[in-house]
Every structure is written in structure tokens, then in C-alpha cells.
């Protein structure tokens, strides 16, 4: 790594192609995720943003192109090297992905126990520090089923940073949250990023929250990068599509109607439809 230490770009994606059936998830995507910054990847739901994170984490293999994490092509690493690299990446899953048979404390302790042999007292200190940083030190004895969605995500965040990773990937961190826990999470992502010197990748379609914390934004649709830049640059865009997406307009380049036959013809022709009997 020392050779790459000066490199400003932590994750470099070049010419990435990945298809799910005939649906393009990534079709020639180039991205640079800079060290120490919060980079957001946005796009309408169903465009495979989560898949993109799994490609970066080496859980899926692309059809073409490469993903360099800290200078290493993640898809050509051996299993051992891959696991070594993953210890330095945290990931926050949409559902939290807490282990349901362990309590909050043990969930945060899990990666530490797996990868280091620490005396129990030191482990306890470390886990409590992580829990304190997400404000849930008092909830350590609860089981995952007793947590609200927002709390589960914060526990998962504490777990993601348990091994002091170099970067954290957030998969839809704001989805389905009430305004308060949304605000808490938005703040946490930014604060942890700056306090721990992390590199953060946030995948989301919540425009307002994401733009408020991101340093740099990529907008994806149908496997292509539709726009990129700082939040200010994006707000000033003159692309019709980006405007529709960022301002949430119901109709525009992305039509309100799912493609189908002409409305009038459809009403007349009763006999061609399976619902017509």
C-alpha cells in the first residue's frame, strides 16, 4: 500500500460492464471515489446501485472492466487477499444485516472476535466506544428484534466501523426512516467520515439528504453515468433528465406511464386482454 498512499483516488472504476439478464446494471461505467470524501451514487430505484456496491466489495464479478480498490484489482485477488482487503472495508446493508441470534454488543464484537484475539476487557472497551459513537451504548443488551429500523442501522454502522476500516459503503441508508432517525443517520455519516478519516460511498435515491452531505455525486440510470459533479454543479444542471430526477417531477423524459398500447384503443379492444373475460 505505501506506493498508493499518495494516491488521491481510493476506488477507481474503469469500463465496468455488468448485466443482469438483459438489464444493464453497469454499461461502461467510469468512477473515481476520492479518499476522505463522501461520494454519493444516486439513481432511480431498480437501477442496480446495490449491485454496484457488491461489485466494489468483490461479491459479484463484472462482465468486463475493472474495479481497483486501493490500487488492487479486486476481482483478480485470491480469496485470502480479498478477505484481507475486505477487513478494511465496512458495509452498511439496507436491512442492517445484524446477526439475529446475537445481541447488540455481540453483533458489534463479532468482526473483532473473528479477526483479532483481544482480551475481553479490551474488547469491551472497543465495542463500547463504537456503540458510543453511534449513540447506542445503552442499548447493548437488546436483541436485534427489539430495535427500531433506525437503531438497527446505527448498530450496523457501529459494526461496520468496528475494525477501523478505510472506507464504508452505505446501501440506501435513509430508506424507510422517520425524519428524526434520517437526520441522525445523515449527521452520523458525515461526522464519522470526518472524525475517523474514512472514505464513504453512499448509495441512495433520497435526493435532499444525500446532496446535503455528499462531496461528489454520480447519477446513474440504465447502467450509464447520467451526470456527475459536486451537489452545487448538479443543482445548476441543464439536463432535462437530471432535473426531473433531482426535483422529483412526476413526468418528463422518464414518462409517468409504463409503456403500453394506446389508452383509447385499449379500452375498445376488450377481446385481446387476459383480464377481459
Amino acid at each position: 500500500m505505501p506506493s498508493n498512499k499518495g494516491d488521491e483516488v481510493l476506488v477507481k472504476i474503469r469500463g465496468l460492464r455488468f448485466f443482469r439478464g438483459s438489464l444493464p446494471i453497469a454499461d461502461g461505467v467510469d468512477m473515481d471515489i476520492r479518499r476522505g470524501k463522501v461520494t454519493a451514487i444516486m439513481g432511480p430505484s431498480g437501477t442496480g446501485k446495490t449491485t454496484l456496491l457488491k461489485l466494489i466489495g468483490g461479491q459479484l464479478y463484472p462482465d468486463a472492466g475493472e474495479v481497483l480498490v486501493d490500487g488492487k484489482n479486486i476481482h483478480t485477488l485470491s480469496r485470502k487477499e480479498l478477505y484481507a482487503l475486505r477487513r478494511r472495508m465496512g458495509m452498511l446493508f439496507q436491512s442492517g444485516a445484524l446477526l439475529t441470534d446475537l445481541d447488540v454488543f455481540e453483533n458489534v464484537a463479532f468482526p473483532i472476535r473473528e479477526h483479532m484475539t483481544l482480551p475481553e476487557s479490551m474488547l469491551r472497551t472497543l465495542v463500547l466506544m463504537k456503540l458510543e459513537s453511534v449513540g447506542l451504548r445503552g442499548a447493548r443488551d437488546l436483541m436485534p428484534s427489539e430495535l427500531s429500523g433506525g437503531m438497527a442501522r446505527r448498530v450496523a454502522l457501529a459494526r461496520a466501523i468496528a475494525l477501523d476500516p478505510m472506507m464504508v459503503m452505505y446501501d440506501e441508508p435513509f430508506t424507510g426512516q422517520d425524519p428524526i432517525s434520517m437526520g441522525v443517520l445523515v449527521q452520523l455519516i458525515r461526522r464519522l467520515n470526518d472524525a475517523l478519516g474514512l472514505t464513504s460511498i453512499v448509495v441512495s435515491h433520497d435526493v435532499k439528504e444525500t446532496l446535503s452531505i455528499a462531496d461528489y455525486v454520480y447519477v446513474l440510470s440504465r447502467g450509464k453515468v447520467m451526470g456527475q459533479g459536486s451537489p452545487e454543479e448538479l443543482r445548476k444542471t441543464d439536463s432535462e433528465w437530471l432535473k426531473q430526477f433531482l426535483q422529483g417531477l412526476p413526468d418528463g423524459p422518464v414518462p409517468f406511464h409504463y409503456p403500453g398500447p394506446d389508452y383509447f384503443d385499449d379500452l375498445i379492444n376488450q377481446d385481446v386482454d387476459s383480464h377481459a373475460s
Partner: peptide, 14 residues
């Protein structure tokens, strides 16, 4: 379904 298996993989736990 709750991504616990994926989560483990991402924590470098097989």
C-alpha cells in the same frame, strides 16, 4: 433474505 450472509462475507467472515 436479511443479507446476513452477504454481511458476513463483507466482514471477511466465510
Amino acid at each position: 433474505a436479511t443479507e446476513q450472509l452477504s454481511g458476513m462475507e463483507m466482514m471477511a467472515v466465510d
